[in-house]
Design a protein around this nucleic acid. Sequence first.
DNA 1: CTGAAAGCGCTTACAG
DNA 2: CTGAAAGCGCTTACAG
Lengths: 337, 337
Amino acid sequence: MKRITIADVAAQANVSKSTVSQFLNKRYEYMSESTRERIKLAIEELDYRPNTVARSLTQKSTFTVGVIVANILHSFSTHIIRAIENKFYETGFHIIVCNADDEPEKEKEYIEMLLAKQVDGIIIFPTGGNVDLYKKMKQSRFPLVFMDRTLADLGIDTVLLDNDKAAELAVTKFVENGYNRIAIVTTSIIRNISPRIERIQGYKNTLKKHRLTVNLDYVKTANADAIPSALEELFKLEERPDAILAGNDIVLMEILKYIKKYDLKIPEDVAVIGIDDVPFASFYTPSITTISQPMIEMANLAVKLLMKQINKKERNVPEIYRLQPKLIERESTNPLQ
Amino acid sequence: MKRITIADVAAQANVSKSTVSQFLNKRYEYMSESTRERIKLAIEELDYRPNTVARSLTQKSTFTVGVIVANILHSFSTHIIRAIENKFYETGFHIIVCNADDEPEKEKEYIEMLLAKQVDGIIIFPTGGNVDLYKKMKQSRFPLVFMDRTLADLGIDTVLLDNDKAAELAVTKFVENGYNRIAIVTTSIIRNISPRIERIQGYKNTLKKHRLTVNLDYVKTANADAIPSALEELFKLEERPDAILAGNDIVLMEILKYIKKYDLKIPEDVAVIGIDDVPFASFYTPSITTISQPMIEMANLAVKLLMKQINKKERNVPEIYRLQPKLIERESTNPLQ
DNA sequence: CTGAAAGCGCTTACAG
DNA sequence: CTGAAAGCGCTTACAG
């Protein structure tokens, strides 16, 4: 089919393209009532829809932003994406979602594709593997917000969970309820993925605060597929842990699988807390104590920061925001005996 | 910052824009070795990235497709989106994800935004509320594929689960294992959302096949937030069901919550099967028998159909594909006594 | 109040 | 092998 353009509308309404354009941009002020009516009619009759691509070319704005998540398999990513999409919908922006799959190479390709597509900004859960690119974007003042993960000294607006606090809440709860051989399991920390590092750090600090010794045998990090064998090691220890903090939802699921497989009892054999409030936590048996992230606020804040960068000409001072986690106590951490 | 354009590259390399364009489009054949080298160098030196928006305007292709899901809260939607994204990544296409939130009005806005953005095609989980729009797109030969849901007689390529079969597998399993007061619970069927209708139909047919009476008290449909009270009704029946088929993941979760709340035992008090193989099914206690959808294949097929429409000039004959579900037997349907 | 012209950054015949 | 010109569908000063 032949596409209808602004020229067709102009012809039909017997005005120039300029005038139609003014109409489209709602600058009715200097337009006679009758022209306005004729244009309106013509648009309806022809079922005309302005071509956003052409508009973007002249206006240098696509009203589209990119969102690159490090790994979409985390329910956290999915929820954040949904919340971001929701928020942008209100402002008429579209989002292009990309999944870097934890591969810096893929992340790089996506960033370049998005830049080529002239998106107005990017929210990114950085893999951490493209520091030069991040720097270049920052330097060229391209609107950019980091989510979930931070990289030292880049000076980029960043929205994070207070990970230290998240670990502290969990460890404190374990201690209060009588557990003292507390382990932490996270996915891999190669490339120094900040939330994992910070959660481990928070875990150690809190143990010390409670005058418990930090036993490095109780700290496990491994790729998702190696979690089962990490757990194996953990449970083969002389003094096996009586409580495990799962660094994220994927780890939690692996722990629950392991526990079911070996027919262990929660919390009698081992207590469990998961960071990320997974949907099944409340009706699992036993229900699982979790640390929840304020995902909606995190998403809204990221959108707000990005929009500020998009709309402002002046340089804004980048900040790092750490939002507060919340402990949701359930049965998996019931007090000992 | 000033953006680098093809003109800058041309100047730097001392050739015309046309030649640079040829280079960009990898038409090296009629280009001297030396020009090629110079252009390559100039592009690197300037860190030039072609502006996709401008290219799209001339080529009338944005290499972007839209995906509108009816409701992103279903894990099925998320998985399909991921698989679709993956597949398109291979071909260099981007996807714009939209969530209609089960609101036809929102779906309509998204369709119009996507068309204005000149996407090359749309994959849509139709709410069913915009038949006229679907028809118009089809009539204008706009590449369009339906997923998950079908609308009678529209003649649009559609990828579905064999829902009848899904219900049959579940009901048959219940019957084989000795259950005979079998209920089905789905989310709302206003607007005749096809998979729900078909699953209920399959349920009824299979009961009849096994010479069991169809008791309409055992068929419940309600919005997500009304599921608890629907379950209430179900369990207050004189003859309360001894098995429940959950129409999707959301319903399954509500059922499990209800069961936990009233301290019922699965499968002793009630057996359960869920359509959609939720991630926690395997390590829930008891593990949950599910009907899984071949999500990757469904996504790949949808992408293939859309790409065929995008690439072909000739009219293709639209077809409806029904892919086969699979029953994954676990503990929640253990044979009676 | 309205229109002609230039321009956004590419691509695509066409000419040489 | 390479370049000048027109065109994609808009918007934006500017003139009248």
